[in-house]
Structures are given as structure tokens and as C-alpha cells.
């Protein structure tokens, strides 16, 4: 039996880092992401793009559920470990950040 160990705590929540700007380029099937804190322009593939859009302050399970649903709509599937790995990538690039507790409604505008 394989036991998968999450790199994240169940209470970890994820959202775009402050100041990060996403610029979808649907004509080319990617999204550009600008990270002003560490000035760089990144090209996100469609799944990284979707994940970045879903990272709105909710916990991993909620983001992964929406991600899985979106994948199912196009006949694909998403394992939790893949979602985690993609989130790790976005965190390393400074696009998505981890919050210790869920953001309450409206807290991003506070």
C-alpha cells in the first residue's frame, strides 16, 4: 500500500502573492504572470494558469476539488499529488503564497 504524504498542512490556504498580475493570452493558450517582488515574467501552461486563478485564499482541498472538476469537464483527471506539485512550482516562482488560515470573505481587500 502506498501512503501519500502531503507537503502541505490541511489548514494551509493559497492565494496569489500581493502585486502578482496575471495576463491571460488565450490566443496562444498560456497566461503570463508578473511577479513584481522578484521582477520576472513567467509563462504559465493551461493547468498552472487555472490553478493560479483558483488560488483565492481557500484551502488545498477546495482548490483541488475545483481543479479536478474543471479537468473532468475536458475529459481529464487530476491527482491531488499533481495539484500539490503544481502549487509548489507556483510558490517557488513567487506567484502563489501560502496562508496559515483560510482568508475570510473580503479579507483580500482589507
Amino acid at each position: 500500500m502506498t501512503v501519500s504524504i502531503s507537503v502541505f498542512c490541511p489548514t494551509d490556504c493559497f492565494r496569489l502573492e500581493p502585486g502578482v498580475r496575471l495576463r491571460p493570452v488565450p490566443e496562444l493558450g498560456h497566461c503570463l504572470a508578473y511577479t513584481p517582488a522578484r521582477p520576472a515574467l513567467h509563462r504559465l501552461n493551461p493547468s498552472a494558469w487555472l490553478l493560479a486563478e483558483l488560488a483565492d485564499g481557500r484551502p488545498l482541498a477546495a482548490i483541488a476539488a475545483d481543479f479536478g472538476e474543471a479537468m473532468a469537464e475536458i475529459g481529464g483527471e487530476a491527482k491531488l499529488s499533481d495539484v500539490e506539485a503544481a502549487l509548489v512550482g507556483l510558490i517557488e516562482l513567487g506567484i502563489v503564497g501560502k496562508l496559515a488560515t483560510p482568508a475570510t470573505e473580503g479579507s483580500q481587500n482589507a
Binding site: G19, R21, Y34, P36, P39, A40, L41
Partner: peptide, 14 residues
Amino acid sequence: FLDLLAEASRSMFT
């Protein structure tokens, strides 16, 4: 120029 650059760099890779 530097002020313009700082302003632009908030939303664009410069």
C-alpha cells in the same frame, strides 16, 4: 524617469 519606472514596474515587467 525613475519615478515613471517605479510606477510602471508595479504592474509590468520592465
